[in-house]
């Protein structure tokens, strides 16, 4: 009973991850320039990688026929999810920071830019 419930919860999380991946890819195609595309990429990493990995961990815990292998699989998925949760914002921040410092991207229809005049 509990294992079936775990399987269904994990499966639903994996499906949510797939949907988030689809919308992230769509946003990467539709958004006009780099700074806005970063947000769509975040949808792809958090909703599309961390959530399905946690879902895979729960799903593996629910599979009784796997024997003792289900604990390593669950542990690997969970630790990988935590690592992505720490690493991916760093990468996004580094990209945004480098792009703004080097002024590589033209950005016209913005509302405001408070960082423009700030000297470091």
């Amino acid at each position: 009973m509990i294992s079936e419930a775990l399987m269904y919860i994990g499966g639903i999380l994996v499906i949510i991850g797939g949907i988030c991946d689809f919308f992230g890819a769509l946003g990467l195609l539709r958004f006009p320039h780099f700074y806005v595309r970063l947000h769509a990429a975040t949808v792809g990493t958090i909703g599309g990688a961390v959530v399905p990995l946690i879902g895979a961990a729960i799903l593996a815990l629910g599979c009784d026929f796997l024997g003792w292998i289900r604990y390593p699989i669950a542990g690997m998925s969970f630790i990988t999810a935590i690592l992505i949760l720490i690493v991916s914002p760093t990468a996004t921040h580094a990209l945004a920071f480098a792009a703004h410092r080097s002024k590589a991207i033209e950005w016209k229809e913005k509302v405001c830019d408070h960082l423009e005049g700030v000297k470091r």
Binding site: H39, T42, I46, L85, I86, P89, H93, A96, F97, L115
Partner: peptide, 13 residues
Amino acid sequence: HSITNTPGTVTVD
């Protein structure tokens, strides 16, 4: 990191 990890906001500096 929490700001960057929520879609819609990214820490630039």
